[in-house]
Design a binder for these strands. Structure first.
Length: 572
RNA sequence: CGGGGCGUAGCGCAGUUUGGUAGCGCACUUGGUUCGGGACUAAGGAGUCGCUGGUUCAAAUCCAGUCGCCCCGACCA
């Protein structure tokens, strides 16, 4: 493709509304333009990247035995009511009425649609297993869209759904997808790690996320790794071994003390001259509009997802200061479990082990010393509520230490079990003629997010460095002066030869100065650059350079195809 | 949703404090020179200053409302 016939609106200056490098590069490189918050237009270069990545995904999904279908972005609201998710997805789902006042939703995922298809089609175990997928646009009205394609309201996703008769068969189907995912990301030039994750709103029993590790601000997720075994989990899910903190300390008599001006953990520990570990934080949340109390140790942080799972709440949020005032009869900062009535008290195991703890007194500027569980208050449930921290002990091998890194979620796999097949009545008959709900899995890959994620990892101060298999073109061909016949003749010849062997070339035939072309080439980031100029042309050679490397080599014009192939074979 | 910030030419910004009828750089058009890391020169086009209303002889500027966009937070107890 000739540059003059493409549309590549590169920009010289940084754009004011882009925070992440990857977002900035996509804007400046002429890959995307914003239409509205979280909604983007993919320009020709981006569309080529999307095609390249989609094709990798498609090939590997097909290889893994999945079948491509196409489903509508629209779905009648009834199906979401039937699955029960209509009320739980909340404002994230975009909804509308058609001209007949029929309620429709824009799908952010397609479990309802695909399960509805299956329940009408699959009747026998002989028709299973089955795996259907599509690559399609999704709509999610995110709380806060941000970072360009990283968290858009409209985005492309590959979503696959597996249907199995038995647990054993399901595990095989799941593993096939996991294997396919590793192949997909590897081909795209990306090392990903598979981590345990919370299944969240999707429901089901277990889930994994595929993370690209980055050290930039683009890494929105925190992942914990054990330094001894292969345990990896994201922060929402990560468990840790509870240190043995039970003591033989004698239970002392409770004592209410004044703590003037001391509401936060820091203030209270400073005032009472104690360690944060001796305090228990009593946090008030509204779980589906009912108050619940969570207790975690003073030196630890509450994990909201764990609390949500423990309370089985659909929506959970921190109580407002007014609600705290109403419920504990004191301002924020002095809540405690003693004397609270008609409320679920969820206690972290680390708190349950504490002796003579310090808690709020539910009175302004007062705390209580020497409080003990069972004696002074009762726990509704003792359950893990705190987030893992660096240096915590691994929950699996019990002797490694956990450490965290930042990552971007580029794919996920969910073991859905029979949640959707039961709700939507998708059943099959087994060999004995008995009816069972179909066991399902669902598997997503962010088609638009993944390439941008790759840029968080692969760039330098000049621009993008695409992994070759998802680059919009493989070769950037630059005749330095298009007014010189020798340059153009050589460029035309190389362009033709490379195209003939199926190597995508972007031919910069613009009448611009060398600096402009070099800078644009560095910015848009194609893996290989061929420069045609007087210096080397005198010897019948051209310059060949990898975007990821700083030096070029001189190549005989006659050998250019083989040299390009060799260079491409070497780079990521 | 809470907090902060920003809307002036395609992009990046100044001008707003102190009201006087819009400017700079890049990009764009045309001519000439230049041509291996974002050239020089001459001429030129392009903005109802987000929108609505108000104050005023006069509003980008002051006031009120509204819409949009960005960032932080939603784990303070």
């Amino acid at each position: 493709m000739r540059w003059s016939q493409m549309y590549i609106p590169t920009l010289r200056e940084d754009q004011s509304d882009a925070e992440l490098v990857s977002h900035q590069l996509l804007l400046r490189g002429g890959y995307i333009r914003k239409l509205a918050s979280g909604i983007y237009i993919y320009l020709p270069l981006m569309q080529r990247v999307i095609h390249k990545f989609s094709n990798i995904v498609r090939e590997e999904m097909n290889y893994a035995g999945a079948l491509e279908i196409g489903m509508s972005v629209l779905c009648p609201a009834e199906l979401w009511q039937e699955s029960g998710r209509y009320n739980t997805v909340g404002n994230e789902q975009m909804r509308m009425k058609d001209r007949h006042q029929h309620e429709m939703v824009l799908c952010g995922t397609h479990e309802e649609t695909v399960t509805t298809l299956i329940r009408g089609e699959i009747k026998s175990y002989r028709q299973l297993p089955l795996n259907l997928y599509q690559i399609q646009v999704k709509f999610r009205d995110e709380i806060r869209p941000r970072f360009g394609l990283m968290r858009g309201r409209e985005f492309l996703m590959k979503d696959a759904y597996s249907f199995d008769a038995t647990e054993k068969s399901f595990m095989e189907s799941y593993q096939k997808m996991v294997d396919a995912y590793f192949r997909i990301f590897k081909r795209a030039g990306l090392d990903v790690v598979k981590v345990e994750s919370d299944s969240g709103a999707m429901g089901g029993k277990a889930a994994h996320e595929f993370m690209l590790l980055v050290d930039t601000n683009g890494g929105e997720e925190i992942i914990f790794f054990c330094d001894k075994c292969d345990y990896t989990a994201n922060v929402e899910k990560a468990e840790f071994k509870i240190e043995d903190s039970s003591s033989d300390e004698e239970l002392k008599v409770t004592e209410k003390v004044d703590t003037p001006g001391a509401a936060t953990i820091e203030e209270v520990t400073a005032f009472l001259k104690v360690e944060a570990k001796q305090l228990a934080k009593t946090l008030l949340y509204m779980a589906d509009n009912k108050p619940v109390v969570a207790m975690v140790r003073g030196d630890r942080e509450l994990n909201l997802i764990k609390l949500q799972n423990a309370t089985e709440a659909i929506e959970i949020e921190m109580a407002t200061p007014e609600q705290v005032q109403n419920f504990t009869s004191s301002p924020v900062g002095f809540a405690g479990p003693v004397g609270l009535k008609d409320v679920g008290i969820y206690v972290d195991p680390l708190v349950a082990d504490m002796k003579n703890m310090i808690v709020g007194a539910n009175e302004f500027e007062k705390h209580i010393l020497n409080v003990n569980i069972d004696r002074d208050f009762k726990a509704t449930k003792v359950v893990d509520l705190t987030s893992a921290q660096n240096e915590d002990q691994c929950p699996r091998c019990n002797y490694g230490k956990l450490n965290s890194k930042k990552g971007i979620e580029v794919g996920n796999t969910f073991m859905l079990g029979t949640k959707y097949s039961e709700a939507l009545d998708a059943k099959y008959l087994d060999a004995e003629g008995k009816e069972h709900p179909i066991i399902m899995g669902s598997y997503g890959i962010g088609i638009t997010r993944t390439p941008q994620s790759a840029l968080e990892r692969y760039h330098d101060d000049k621009g993008i460095i695409w992994p070759k298999n998802i680059a919009p073109f493989l070769v950037h061909l630059i005749p330095l002066n298009v007014k010189k016949d020798s340059h153009i003749e050589t460029a035309d010849r190389i362009y033709k030869e490379l195209n003939e062997v199926g190597i995508d070339v972007l031919y910069d035939d613009r009448n611009d100065r060398a600096g402009v072309k070099f800078n644009d080439a560095d910015l848009i980031g194609l893996p290989v650059r061929i420069t045609i100029g007087d210096k080397s042309l005198k010897e019948g050679k051209v310059e060949l350079k990898a975007r990821s490397e700083s030096d070029f080599i001189l190549v005989d014009i006659d050998n250019i195809v083989i040299a390009v192939k060799q260079l491409l074979g070497r780079v990521n």
